[in-house]
């Protein structure tokens, strides 16, 4: 765990009643890096994201965003966090501009600054021409890019993307993934990309494998994959049967 990490999660556990959803999870996201969080459905990815976004508090351990302890300095920590949730978070009845203005206000960004930032982030995600369009009229891929624009509006240090490509066709999936990697290169933002799709992970990505609430491996994807490849290694590690 380095002092300059965009995110550090140290010995975090969490229970829902008798169910232990996360067990002593430790991971970090270095600044300006793409880190993949790989796990099957039910591995604990969404629970971990819920803790990092402080939808609820972790019962043990420490979570720091850009060096700010989430429980001691929630306001500072959350101000540095941009989140793309697994489920749709934009209001379908409102336009893209209205949605982004709303989210800018949730970060206390005044009107003039908000307009400039909205124009900037929409250009970044190639949606400049869709500012006045209702979200309900967007395609799945466009909608996801609008969600990413929303998450970027307050210039966060860390982007959390929870299964951001779920429900998208192959082309849109590739676009959203490429966009995220481009944002890291161009804006210097860090990203924690939760997924269960191994094709989305490149050999030089940082990788964390989460299974049944525990971190099984963390390191460079190529190192973890070894000679057997990522799919075989993942199946061996988790004991999950291939379909």
């Amino acid at each position: 765990m380095r002092a300059g990490d965009a995110l550090s999660v140290e010995n975090v556990s969490h229970r829902f009643g008798k169910v232990e959803a996360l067990k002593d999870v430790t991971l970090s996201v270095p600044r300006g890096a793409f880190t993949a969080l790989l796990g099957v459905n039910g591995a604990g990815k969404t629970t971990l994201f819920s803790l990092i976004t402080r939808l609820y508090d972790n019962t043990s351990g420490v979570i720091r965003v850009a060096g700010h302890d989430l429980r001691r300095e929630p306001s500072r920590a959350l101000a540095r966090l941009g989140v793309v949730f697994q489920s749709r978070a934009l209001d379908a009845d409102l336009t893209v501009m209205q949605n982004l203005s709303y989210h800018a206000s949730l970060h206390g960004i005044p009107g003039r600054n908000a307009k400039a930032r909205i124009a900037d982030v929409l250009a970044q995600v190639d949606l400049s021409g869709k500012a006045g369009a209702r979200v309900s009229s967007l395609s799945g891929g466009q909608s996801r890019r609008a969600e990413i624009a929303r998450a970027l509006i307050h210039e966060p240090d860390l982007l959390l993307l929870d299964e951001a490509t779920v429900g998208l066709d192959v082309k849109s999936r590739a676009e959203v993934l490429a966009l995220t990697r481009r944002l890291i290169a161009e804006r210097g933002v860090s990203a924690l990309w939760a997924t269960h799709i191994m094709d989305e992970i490149q050999p030089d990505d940082a990788l964390v494998i989460l299974h049944r609430g525990q971190v099984l491996e963390r390191g460079l994807a190529a190192d973890i994959a070894g000679p057997n490849g990522l799919t075989r290694t993942f199946l061996d590690l988790t004991g999950v049967e291939a379909a």
């Binding site: 209001d91 206000s105 240090d157």
Partner: peptide, 29 residues
């Protein structure tokens, strides 16, 4: 990317946040 983004408290963004929420509710209505 900046590490110096001000927090809402320092920026005095409370009224901005309230007006944003009120505007969204009105638009939805």
């Amino acid at each position: 990317m900046t590490m110096t983004a001000p927090t809402p408290k320092r920026r005095g963004g409370w009224p901005i946040a309230f007006l944003g929420i009120a505007r969204r509710e009105t638009l939805r209505f």
